[in-house]
């Protein structure tokens, strides 16, 4: 399905990934150089870093408590005290958006990390062992990909019960096949390469081959798809929150904030405006960064 759009996990800004990869310095350095030259990618990186900082320092930055209700102050328009106004409980929207960054980034990265781990494991197993193992795992991927993703997520949450954690699990599940297929095809192509054949010939253990050769070689596409997948995961989490299937009150989850404020859109449009903007900006940041990473790391994936 939409591999290119519909992607995967963790935010590893290249500068963080680099030190761990000292052995392979030159390609990563090269990539960082080309990433740096890409203006849009830098914009994306800045947006993402901005929200990461918000999330980390929420307790210090936020002007109020995210669950401090004061019904006398409800639905106040933006002002000097409340830059983004207040919601129907008189809570400061800016504060809630800052704390919301924590939730969205957490759900986005964690769910994608989950799908990378499970997806990669399944993909590697399928690719490496082939035959019926491959057939079974690939069919499972096919089946999962045959559902529109949000529908599958809704069904999974219905089974598990609505909560932030379960939304996270649902999103992780729907992204598993994306990484599974990615890793499987990497394994298939790497497997044929000479040094792997050589490694096998000298009696290297399967697990060593996987850990030392196949995984490092697949890192670049994982990072690229992962970054883009965080973007989709954030939207999906917000969508589930919006449908009442994700975070529960008074958690300041952006999608839930939108759903709660819907009824007040006429009298207090700011209650709907800002949470949506926050979702859009974060997603935009990850998308731009992902595009940039793709161009830098894996020119073949460019279209």
């Amino acid at each position: 399905m939409a591999e290119a759009l519909h992607n995967t996990p963790p935010v590893l800004p290249p500068e963080m990934a680099r030190p761990a990869e000292e052995k392979a310095v030159s390609p990563w350095k090269e990539a960082w150089r080309s990433f740096r030259k890409n203006k849009l990618a830098i914009v994306g990186l800045s947006i993402v870093s901005f929200f990461i900082l918000l999330a980390i320092f929420a307790d210090l930055i936020a002007p109020y408590e995210y669950d401090a209700t004061n019904l006398r102050n409800k639905n106040l328009a933006p002002s000097a005290e409340h830059w983004f106004g207040t919601d129907e409980f008189g809570r400061d929207i800016l504060t809630r958006i800052i704390y919301g960054a924590r939730i969205s980034l957490w759900v986005g990265t964690l769910s994608v990390a989950g799908s990378i781990i499970v997806g990669s494991a399944l993909g590697i197993i399928a690719g490496y062992y082939g035959r019926w193992v491959d057939a079974v795992i690939s069919r499972i991927f096919d089946i999962l990909l045959a559902f529109p993703s949000i529908l599958l997520a809704i069904a999974v949450v219905s089974v598990l019960g609505p909560s932030l954690r379960n939304a996270l699990i649902a999103i992780a599940i729907i992204n598993v096949p994306t990484f599974g297929r990615l890793l499987r095809s990497r394994v298939l192509s790497v497997k044929e390469e000479e040094y792997i054949t050589a490694a096998k010939a000298i009696g290297m253990k399967d697990s060593r081959i996987l850990l030392h050769h196949i995984l490092p070689n697949s890192l670049a596409p994982i990072i690229v798809s992962g970054t883009l997948a965080v973007a989709t995961a954030i939207i999906e989490a917000a969508a589930l929150g919006f449908l009442g299937l994700g975070a529960q009150a008074p958690t300041p989850e952006w999608g839930k904030m939108l759903a709660d404020s819907r009824n007040y859109i006429i009298d207090a449009p700011w209650t709907v405006l800002f949470p949506g903007l926050a979702i859009m900006l974060t997603v935009l940041g990850f998308n731009l960064m992902g595009d940039g990473l793709r161009d830098a790391l894996d020119p073949r994936m460019k279209n």
Partner: peptide, 21 residues
């Protein structure tokens, strides 16, 4: 949901931590 949140806020005044389920 919203009435629940209002009750939740009231209970907080005496240290009762209510989790909305």
């Amino acid at each position: 949901q919203k009435v629940g949140e209002a009750i939740q806020a009231s209970l907080k005044q005496v240290g009762i931590e209510a989790k909305i389920v």
